[in-house]
Amino acid sequence: MKAIRVAQYGQPEGLVFEDIPSPVPGKNEVLIEVAGSGVNPVDWKVLSGAMKAFIPLQLPYTPGVEVAGRVAAIGEGVTAFSVGDEVFGFINIVGGYATEAVASVDRLARRPSRLPALQAAGVSAVALTAWQALHEHGQIKAGQRVLIHGAAGGVGSLAVQLARIAGAVVIATASAGNHDYLRGLGATEVVDYNQVRFEAVVEPVDVVLDLIGGDTQARSWSVLKPGGVLVSPVSPPDATKAQAVAATGKHFATRSDGAQLEQIAALFESGELVIDVDVLPLSQAEEALRRSLSGHTRGKLVLDASR
């Protein structure tokens, strides 16, 4: 099979596209013939070496946390899926940038028939992040006001839709070129962070989903209602600042969850959720990671495993 390989930690320039042996599914695992692989910030964070202290990897390794494709073989004990099933999932912290990948069945869901494989390849990590941020940590309710920073990106664009589906009023921050896009996804109000400081124009909110960190996160406390929640998968919120405004800060790492992904799949099947993807060949993973590093992509970057 073909795979992108990382021989040493560093920059995207170190990636190699080469032939390696196909993986073999173990107990409760399936082998997936990959149609596409999603590109996520965690991919370049792992590549940089910044995470090696708590995610030790044997070099060389294949990047990629999520895929969509067809089940090509099943391991011992697998009953949930059969050869030929179309699936997608957040498979692991590595292994996705390849034409074949192995995944545990509890990390997968069946691909919705109305969601093409290359779009499905970019769903799992961002949709699970948005779902867990809003429903598990933010505990959003109908009628609440939710502020989403970085709303035009992969996680943000799914979060706008999930918050809308939950009945929340969605306020998004984004550059001017993404305002119509976000209104189309369900944002009631969109603030151009290049033109105005959001805290000067946003009325108090119940939940802030911070996908930016740094100064944006620090300024977000001023728009939270007492009892509100600031949720960030990017960086831990300051507990002292949270206490000062009688709010709560929550930081989390996204959990792979096949059952949760099935609920998300149902929303794609019904047409309530959509995803915007930009597709590059698998052989151009280096360019895809450079774009992801820029931090200004709309929707999701996906690698086409057939090219």
Rank of each mutant, 00 (worst) to 15 (best):
P236I: 05
P236D: 05
P236R: 07
P237V: 02
P237A: 05
D238P: 08
D238L: 10
D238R: 12
A239S: 14
T240S: 13
T240C: 03
T240N: 11
T240Q: 14
K241Y: 00
K241G: 03
A242N: 08
Q243K: 15
Q243A: 15
Q243E: 13
A244T: 11
A244I: 08
A244Q: 14
A244M: 07
V245I: 11
V245Q: 07
V245L: 06
V245D: 04
A246H: 12
A246K: 14
A246N: 14
A247E: 10
A247H: 03
T248H: 14
T248V: 15
T248F: 10
T248C: 13
G249N: 09
G249L: 13
G249V: 09
G249S: 10
K250R: 15
K250W: 01
K250E: 07
H251R: 08
F252G: 00
A253E: 11
A253R: 14
A253N: 13
A253G: 12
T254C: 11
T254H: 03
R255Y: 04
S256C: 03
S256H: 09
D257R: 05
D257V: 00
D257C: 10
D257K: 05
D257T: 00
G258H: 03
G258A: 08
G258F: 10
G258E: 04
G258K: 09
A259H: 14
A259F: 12
Q260I: 04
Q260K: 12
Q260Y: 02
L261W: 07
L261Y: 01
Q263S: 15
Q263L: 13
I264E: 03
I264T: 12
I264S: 06
I264R: 13
I264H: 09
A265C: 01
A265L: 05
A265P: 10
A265D: 04
A266G: 07
A266M: 07
A266E: 11
A266F: 05
A266S: 13
L267V: 04
L267K: 15
L267C: 03
L267D: 06
F268D: 02
F268T: 00
F268C: 00
F268G: 02
F268S: 01
E269H: 08
E269V: 05
G271E: 03
G271P: 04
E272L: 11
E272S: 14
L273F: 06
L273E: 04
L273Q: 01
L273C: 03
L273S: 00
L273A: 02
V274N: 13
V274C: 13
V274R: 15
V274M: 12
I275P: 11
I275F: 06
I275R: 12
I275M: 10
D276Q: 13
D276Y: 10
D276K: 15
D276H: 15
D278R: 13
D278L: 05
L280H: 08
L280G: 02
L280V: 11
L280W: 09
P281S: 00
P281V: 01
P281F: 01
P281R: 01
P281M: 01
L282W: 03
L282T: 09
S283W: 00
S283Y: 00
S283V: 05
S283R: 09
S283Q: 08
S283G: 12
S283F: 06
S283D: 02
